[in-house]
Design a protein around this nucleic acid. Structure first.
Length: 649
RNA sequence: GGGCGCGUAGCUCAGUUGGAUAGAGCAUCAGCCUUCUAAGCUGAGGGUCGCAGGUUCGAGUCCUGCCGCGCCUACCA
C-alpha cells in the first residue's frame, strides 16, 4: 500500500511538473526528518527553483494547488523553505492492508540473468565464495520479489589452471590413478583433501619451477579431452561442483543452470566468437613487442582516452590457446543470445522441492531442457579485483557493435572478505611482520589460507545449538538441531549482507558468531515473537479474529489516530519500497537494514503493548491485527534475504 | 607511474543519489524478567564526517589538490 501510494503521488507530480514547467525531473521521495512533519516529503520545489529562478516556497504552493487531491492522501503542506509534506489518509491506508498482499506486478517477459558463485572447482569453498553466492542469491530473490523473471547461472571453469593444478598434485606428486581418485571421492572429504593438495602443489611450483611443465601438459590434455590427466580433471571438477552445490544448499542457495567451460570449448563457442571479433576488427594480430604473435584487444577499447603507456589485452596467446577473457566474451555473447549457438543440457541435481538444475553437455540429449540464455539484462556477480577483466569483456561487446547489451551487462562487483588479525590468531596462522601491520589479511587459496565455508557453518550451528538446547531442553536433539541450523544460517547470511558491496569485510569469528544486535537472529527472533502471540492466543482457547470482518476504515482511523500506532504501521508497510530502492541502488544490504529496522520497530511495539491481556475488545483486535501484519512483513522480508523464520527460538 | 575503491563515535559500519537537528550495532555505564520468550527493552556518555580549498540558498554526499590505506595494472582466473 505504501508502495502504491508512493507511485501514485510520484505520477501525479510528474505529470504536473511536466505540463506546468516542461521539466522531466525525477520526483524524489524522502522520509521527513521528523515524523511530525508528515508521512512523505517531496523536495521537488528546490530542484525546480534552480532552473526557474523562483522562490521554492511559491513553486511548492503552486504545485500542490495544481495537483489537487490525490486518492489516499489526506493533506499536503508546505514546510521549511519549500518541502511538500504529504499526510496519508490513515483509515484508508489501514483498511487497504487487511487483505492478502498483492502479488508483484509482472515486469513483462524479459529475462534477467544473474551469474554468481563461479568457484573454481578444485577445492572447498571459503568465506569469500560465500559472500559472492549470498549476494547473488539475495539479489535474485529481490528481483523475483519485484516480479522479474530471473535465471540463475553458475559458471563452471572446469578446464582452467586451478583444476589442472590439483590434477598435477594427484598425478605427478601423489601418483594416483583415476581409479584411486574415484575411490577418494567416494570415501573422503574430497573438497577438503583438494584444498590441502592445491596448496601443496602451489608450494611445489615455487620450490621447483620446472614442475610448471606438468601444468602445461595437464592443461593440454584437459583441452584435448583425452588421456588420464583429462579424466582426472573431470573427476575432480565434477566431484567438487557437487560439493559446492551441497555447501550452498545449506544456505538455501539454488541454481538453474551450470554452463561449463568444457562445452564452451567443445561446442566451438570460442571459435564463433573469435570469427566475430576478427571480422569486426575488435581485436588484431600483434606483430611486434612483447605481445608479438598474440591476438590482442587495444587498450583504447576498454580504457579511457589517454593511452600513454597502457598495455593492450591478450585474447589469444601466441601458442594459439584462448585466455579466460576470450572465453568469457563468448559466454557473455551467449547469455545475450548473440552467439548463434547453444549448449546441450542434461539434468544435474534435483532439489527437494523438485526444482531441477541443468548442466551443459557437448552431445544432444533426449530429455528436453528449458531454454537458457538469451537474457535482456545480465548481472555478473564477480569480485571487484576482476574489474579490469570485466571491462575488457564489456569492451568486447561494444567493439562488436552490441552497444545496448554492453550497457545491460553489469559487473555486480563486491569487495573481498579478508581475515582480521585476531581471526588469523584464532586460526593459528602466523603472519609476516608486514602482514601483521595491515588492517586485514587477504585470503589465499594457493596458500591454503582461509576459513572454509562448511567449517564456519558447522561452528555457527554448534554455537546456536548450545543456546537452543539451554532454552528448550525438552525438545529432541533433532528438533534442536533443525532450529539451530536455521538460526546459524540466518546469522551467516545476514552477516555477509549487512555490509555494502564495496566494503572490505575483515572477517572475525566473534562478530560472525554473534546473535545479538544487528544480526539475522535478531530479526528471526522478532518474527518468532509475533507468531508466538498468535499461537498463545489459540492455546488460551481464543480465536484469531477475522480481521477483514472486525476492522474497517473507520476502526482503523480511530486506532491509527494514535501517532504511535500510525508510525509503527507505516514503518511496517514499506517492504516493497525497501526492496525496490535496494534493487535501484544494487545494494542487498539495504534490504538487510530494513529487516533490522522492521524487527526493531516490532520489538518496540511488543514491549509497549501487552496484547493478550488487553481488556478492550476493539483495541485487542487491532493489536492482534498489527501483530499478524508484522509477522507477515517480517517473514516476507526474511524470505527476500533467504533467511528462514524458525518455529521457535 | 596509471586505474578503481576506501577514510564518518573507542571498535565495526549505515547514511534513500545535494536537503530539515549526522544515525545504527558492539563495547562502557545506569535501569527493566510474578505481565504475549531478556537472542529483548529503556536511558546516558561518546563526532573538527582524513586535511585544505572550491561550487550554491544548502555539502558527510559534487569538483580540485594534498595525506593515509587497500585492490588491480599476466600469453593465471
Amino acid at each position: 500500500m505504501y508502495h502504491i501510494l508512493e507511485k501514485t503521488i510520484q505520477a501525479a507530480f510528474r505529470a504536473k511538473v511536466r505540463s506546468q514547467f516542461q521539466s522531466d525531473l525525477d520526483i524524489a521521495i524522502e522520509q521527513p526528518r521528523q515524523a511530525s512533519f508528515g508521512d512523505l516529503a517531496l523536495p521537488i520545489a528546490f530542484q525546480l527553483a534552480r532552473a526557474l529562478k523562483q522562490n521554492p516556497k511559491k513553486i511548492a504552493a503552486d504545485l500542490v494547488e495544481a495537483v489537487g487531491p490525490i486518492p489516499g492522501v489526506a493533506a499536503m503542506e508546505i514546510a521549511g523553505n519549500g518541502y511538500i509534506n504529504v499526510r496519508f489518509d490513515r483509515g484508508l491506508f489501514g483498511a487497504s492492508l487487511l487483505g492478502v498482499p498483492a502479488p508483484a506486478i509482472a515486469a513483462g517477459d524479459e529475462k534477467i540473468i544473474v551469474e554468481h558463485t563461479n568457484i573454481n572447482p578444485n577445492k572447498a569453498a571459503h568465506i569469500g565464495h560465500l559472500r559472492n553466492a549470498v549476494l547473488g542469491d539475495t539479489f535474485v530473490r529481490m528481483l523475483r520479489a519485484a516480479g522479474n523473471r530471473v535465471e540463475v547461472q553458475n559458471y563452471i571453469d572446469n578446464t582452467g589452471v586451478q583444476v589442472a593444478d590439483v590434477v598435477v598434485g594427484f598425478h605427478f606428486l601423489e601418483h594416483k590413478t583415476p581409479a584411486d581418485v574415484a575411490a577418494l571421492i567416494a570415501s573422503e572429504r574430497f573438497d577438503y583433501l583438494c584444498w590441502d593438495l592445491y596448496a601443496r602443489t602451489s608450494q611445489y611450483y615455487k620450490d621447483n619451477p620446472e614442475a610448471l611443465k606438468w601444468r602445461a601438459e595437464t592443461l593440454h590434455s584437459i583441452e584435448a579431452g583425452t588421456g588420464d590427466l583429462s579424466e582426472l580433471g573431470h573427476l575432480v571438477a565434477d566431484a567438487i561442483v557437487k560439493a559446492h552445490l551441497k555447501t550452498m544448499l545449506r544456505l538455501n542457495i539454488e541454481y538453474d543452470v551450470l554452463p561449463r567451460e568444457s562445452e564452451i570449448l567443445h561446442l566451438k563457442f570460442w571459435a564463433a566468437a573469435f570469427e566475430l571479433l576478427k571480422e569486426r576488427q575488435a581485436i588484431y594480430f600483434e606483430t611486434e613487442g612483447k605481445n608479438s604473435g598474440c591476438w590482442v584487444m587495444p587498450s583504447s577499447a576498454f580504457r579511457g582516452t589517454d593511452e600513454a603507456n597502457e598495455d593492450s589485452k591478450v585474447i589469444v596467446r601466441s601458442n594459439g590457446t584462448v585466455t579466460y577473457v576470450g572465453k568469457d566474451i563468448a559466454y557473455q555473447l551467449w547469455k545475450f543470445g548473440l552467439l548463434g549457438k547453444d549448449f546441450h543440457y542434461e539434468p544435474h541435481t534435483t532439489y527437494a522441492d523438485g526444482h531441477q538444475v541443468w548442466v551443459s553437455t557437448a552431445e544432444p540429449q533426449t530429455l528436453a531442457a528449458p531454454k537458457f540464455g538469451g537474457g535482456s539484462t545480465v548481472y555478473n556477480v564477480i569480485d571487484t579485483r576482476q574489474s579490469y577483466l570485466q571491462d575488457v569483456v564489456v569492451a568486447g561487446l561494444k567493439a562488436l557493435g552490441y552497444e545496448k547489451q554492453a550497457e545491460q551487462s553489469i559487473h555486480f562487483s563486491y569487495e573481498m572478505v579478508a581475515l582480521s588479525p585476531r581471526c588469523c590468531a584464532d586460526l593459528g596462522i602466523e603472519l609476516s611482520e608486514e602482514d601483521a601491520r595491515r588492517p586485514y589479511v587477504e585470503v589465499s587459496g594457493r596458500k591454503g589460507l582461509g576459513v572454509k565455508a562448511d567449517d564456519l557453518m558447522d561452528q555457527l550451528i554448534e554455537t546456536a545449538l548450545r543456546e537452543v538446547a539451554s532454552r528448550h531442553a525438552e525438545d529432541t536433539e533433532a528438533q534442536q538441531r533443525t532450529i539451530a541450523t536455521e538460526i546459524a544460517m540466518g546469522a551467516l547470511r545476514y552477516f555477509l549482507l549487512k555490509f555494502t558491496r564495496n566494503t572490505v569485510i575483515a572477517f572475525d569469528f566473534q562478530e560472525a558468531l554473534s546473535f545479538e544486535g544487528e544480526t539475522g537472529p535478531y530479526v528471526q527472533y522478532a518474527a518468532v515473537r509475533a507468531r508466538n502471540i498468535l499461537r498463545k492466543l489459540t492455546e488460551r482457547g481464543e480465536q484469531v479474529p477475522d480481521f477483514s470482518k472486525e476492522l474497517n476504515a473507520e476502526a482503523m482511523a480511530r486506532e491509527l489516530g494514535s501517532e504511535d500506532s500510525w508510525q509503527i504501521l507505516l514503518a511496517a508497510s514499506k517492504v516493497e519500497s525497501a526492496v525496490e530502492r535496494a534493487i535501484a541502488s544494487g545494494e542487498p544490504a539495504h534490504v538487510a537494514r530494513y529487516a533490522f529496522q522492521l524487527a526493531q520497530t516490532f520489538n518496540n511495539f511488543y514491549h509497549q503493548y501487552p496484547i493478550l491481556i488487553e481488556p478492550d475488545r476493539a483495541k485487542k483486535v487491532f493489536l492482534l491485527w498489527m501483530t499478524s501484519f508484522f509477522a507477515q512483513q517480517l517473514e516476507r522480508t526474511l524470505a527476500v534475504l533467504g533467511i528462514a523464520a524458525p518455529a521457535y527460538m
